[in-house]
Design a protein around this nucleic acid. Structure first.
Lengths: 224, 224, 224, 224
DNA sequence: CGGTAAGCGAGACGGTACGTCGAGTCTTATG
DNA sequence: CATAAGACTCGACGTACCGTCTCGCTTACCG
């Protein structure tokens, strides 16, 4: 096993670890693991809140979602929500983006193929999300640095890691002469899709084709 | 004068027209031009509001801006604001993005050069704006279709026109074999910059270099 | 022994009985006496609750007393409180007024002397209680008929019994020509003291003198 | 005109003054009298709030009155209420006891007659008020010193003034050898009625007769 | 002497009300 | 008429408490 492969294998394991940890629902104040004094939080309620949040979001949109509405629909007191989340935004964040996971794609044998796979996966996620929710969340990140940090840690960092992995592979494979800046690749790869969907309001059906074009372009540019 | 040049010249004139009209401050309900019965609106107040909006925005951020705060700082009644703008968002929109103008860049002689110029201009604008304001505005577009339409008409449509112009030139010049989809070019050109600045929170100093890279990549991809 | 004396003696015995029973702490739902399956209630806790209630009452006042605060200070779970008392008011009632007892005063030989003794005793009790607690309790009686009944049964009825006893003595002694209405005597005797302390916020030091004046006045009025 | 009469006449004028001033509705923050900039408060709303408060009080009782209910019934926003009153208690106070006025009774020619008149008037007021409201208010006075002061200033001070006036008359008339303590007379006169109505839950029909008894007793006691 | 029913501390639960705040509208008096 | 001031309605926010309900333990009595 060559060094690069070893590193990659290790990275994959870390990813698994991170992902599995993060699927445990986020709680405002995690009870200390040593022992659970008092009544433990009801897991049903976590799900009821998340589900209700998504439903209200779908029916009324981000701007018109109210905590009371979520509580009512979940059949839950408002206190149960605020015991879990410090703000409405945290709740929405947890309900919508928290458990997105993107394990790095299987090695397709070429940088171009790998990038296409990454791009397709993320494009799919972006295409699924409601644009108003994403924009609303993005807007609310500013001024709530805690949430901002978690957004970065969840979304951005994970995508970054995937891209890192793909670039490592290409380097190991010899597809790439030198390591490009990950953030630049990230922006060049995802930026166009994001812009197309979220700013231009482009057709979702054309995304797969467009995503392929973008991946090809980036691959070609990196190879040069 | 060849046809393409004629069209372009015409386009430029239309642009000028649009731009000049838009620098007249946006008013909710324009007093009928035939005669101004009663006291005319005070132009000073338009500026006071815009300035106050920008100041409050800078000091407290988009999310914490209140109409009362703007009115107080402008030394103006709230009614004076709502006589001009239907909503808070309109007011902010008018104060921040209203008068951005991008005439198509002078012909640099090559598609690559033109794209680089376009990209640099827009990157500059994007880099100047506060990210929270832009995200806030973007979020508020959903659910206010009037504002959404005006945003598209102002921002998107103008950029699109510029890109169209550049592509037309390239076609006329023979740099391009066939016309690519403008929206796709738009997304590929601006998307990465937008993503870099607004999502990744990337360094602004690196934007010019990155913008050049992006323009080169897109030019190369289109030429192929 | 004449009939009136016999009745009085009997009354006194009943009083003793009532009083002694009531010193057993009030419990919401007394375990059936036939057999105590399971762990018996911890008597320490009764006292801890009562003490904590009084302390919190003294420190924060009636209006700001919370059950959680009492539980915390008593080092006790809220459930232990609600196992004993149906409501917060019951708890406070039990902790503050429950064990007030007023055996009828020894026969002083005259109605005037007896009334003065009764008045002095009750005045002393009233002077000891915090005014906000008493008013709070009084306010909470309305709308909680169970507590209202117990308040009447404990406070009012006992005072009434004492006054009855004193009047019986006076009648037997020949100080009184005919039996006055007990409630009216009660009100005339205690009302002024109550009003002075609880409504006018009068000085406590003057209460003994005032109480004597009142007793004299009432005695004179009854004798006429 | 003898000195005592002159003083009394003067006192009466002051009373009128005080009373007339106090009928202007209490407002949290009185607009400065020099000029009313902005929209003035709507007097209709003052009345609507007071009326709604009284109705809700009558229907649901003091403990179950909510600000939302009052606002809803008055057809008024909660903000309009909180613009006028700092707390719920202030609102209730203003709606219930604010405008009680008791001008000193006409000179009946004797202390006994005057005291009877005073007693009857106050007994009538006390008999009209709902006991739960009065107790609730009394309880809430503690812990809100501002409200406590206003209660004293409104209720107590006014009754005290009336009693003072009556005592002055008796002194001038020669019915009284020396001036008794006003507070003690106050307590002896009103205390029994208050206690009868508010604590013993006595029959209201018997109040007039009882009130006469009390007045007689006090008059006799003072004359001695 | 071991089972079991009830007690216990801790703390989550559904509700309900609080008092605050902001948006957008309306009403004054003044220019 | 436009304006500054500020009151108006509406509706959401996040907090606080109440009285109830689990949890996992501990404790005394009964068989």
């Amino acid at each position: 096993m060559r060094p690069a492969q070893a590193i990659m294998a290790c990275s994959l394991m870390i990813t698994e670890l991170l992902v599995s940890e993060l699927t445990v629902p986020y709680h405002r104040e995690m009870p200390k693991p040593k022992q659970a004094a008092g009544r433990p939080r009801d897991g049903q309620i976590d799900h009821a809140i998340a589900r209700a949040t998504r439903e209200v979001l779908a029916e009324r949109g981000y701007a018109k979602l109210t905590v009371d509405a979520v509580a009512a629909r979940a059949g839950v007191g408002k206190a149960a929500i605020y015991r879990r989340f410090a703000t409405k935004q945290e709740m929405i964040f947890a309900a919508t983006v928290h458990d997105m996971e993107e394990p790095p794609p299987p090695d397709s044998g070429s940088l171009r193929g790998d990038l296409a796979a990454v791009c397709a996966t993320i494009a799919d996620q972006l295409g699924t999300a409601a644009p108003d929710v994403l924009h609303g969340l993005l807007a609310d990140l500013h001024g709530d640095s805690a949430l901002g940090a978690r957004f970065t840690g969840t979304f951005i960092e994970r995508e970054r890691f995937v891209i890192d992995t793909v670039l490592d592979r290409a380097l190991a494979r010899g597809d790439l002469a030198r390591r490009p800046d990950t953030a630049e690749v990230h922006a060049q790869l995802i930026g166009p899709i994001f812009f197309w969907l979220m700013i231009l309001g482009g057709d979702r059906d054309q995304v797969p084709a467009f995503s392929r074009t973008v991946a090809d372009t980036v691959a070609a540019s990196l190879a040069a």
